[in-house]
Computed example of a mutant assay.
Amino acid sequence: MNAAAAPPLPPHGAPTSSETGHSFAELRARAKELLAANINPRTGLATDYLNHYNEAIMLLEMIPDMPECAEDFLAWHPLTYAEHFRASNFKARDLAIAAYDAAAPTIRAQFDAITASMTTILVAVGNALRQVQQDHSRARLAQEAIGWVKPLVMQAGAVINGPGHEADEAEVDHIMTE
């Protein structure tokens, strides 16, 4: 199936296949394709994007014990969802980008707002780290930033996984056979 052939699956109670213009078989094949690529078929989002932020968190976590790691964090730069996948080795990167583009506007807006907040925090922390030279100040700043960003990563994960986030292959198959 072509990456742009069908959108992510509609949420439970959303318009049926006849209302969306896609056949049941197309939606079912799309769900399987997305699941196989580790993309949530309900939201059209992949948790792989959160690795970009988890990398920044990991670098921040190292600063208190190894102050020289601040330079590694300063080399981190924000990437959009599409930029991340284009630069990654993710097998289904084109599918991930197409699914994101086809995701429900409300889901994307919520997800984008959270990732924008993470990016804003991490960029501001980077700017502050460039100005602060004392290791204990850098360590404290890194620890504060971790406390701000980690909960946002969890919120972004919740958006990716959708309500109830039990949408695994068995659940999607069950829903598709109803």
Rank of each mutant, 00 (worst) to 15 (best):
P10A: 04
P11E: 07
P11G: 01
P11D: 01
A14T: 14
T16K: 14
S17W: 01
S17Q: 09
S17L: 07
S18D: 13
S18G: 10
E19M: 15
G21R: 01
G21F: 04
H22R: 15
H22K: 14
F24R: 15
F24A: 15
L27F: 01
L27N: 02
L27Q: 11
A31V: 03
E33L: 14
L34M: 08
L34Q: 11
A36D: 10
A36Q: 01
A37K: 07
A37G: 00
A37L: 05
N40G: 04
N40I: 12
P41V: 06
P41E: 00
R42T: 05
G44N: 00
L45M: 00
A46Y: 01
D48T: 05
Y49W: 12
L50K: 01
N51R: 15
Y53F: 15
Y53E: 10
N54S: 09
N54L: 12
A56N: 04
A56W: 01
I57C: 07
M58N: 05
L60R: 06
E61G: 05
M62V: 05
M62S: 03
P64A: 02
D65A: 14
D65V: 09
D65W: 13
P67L: 02
C69G: 12
E71V: 03
D72E: 13
F73K: 06
A75L: 01
W76T: 12
L79K: 14
Y81F: 13
Y81P: 12
A82S: 08
E83S: 02
H84G: 00
H84K: 11
N89K: 02
F90N: 03
K91D: 14
K91N: 11
K91W: 10
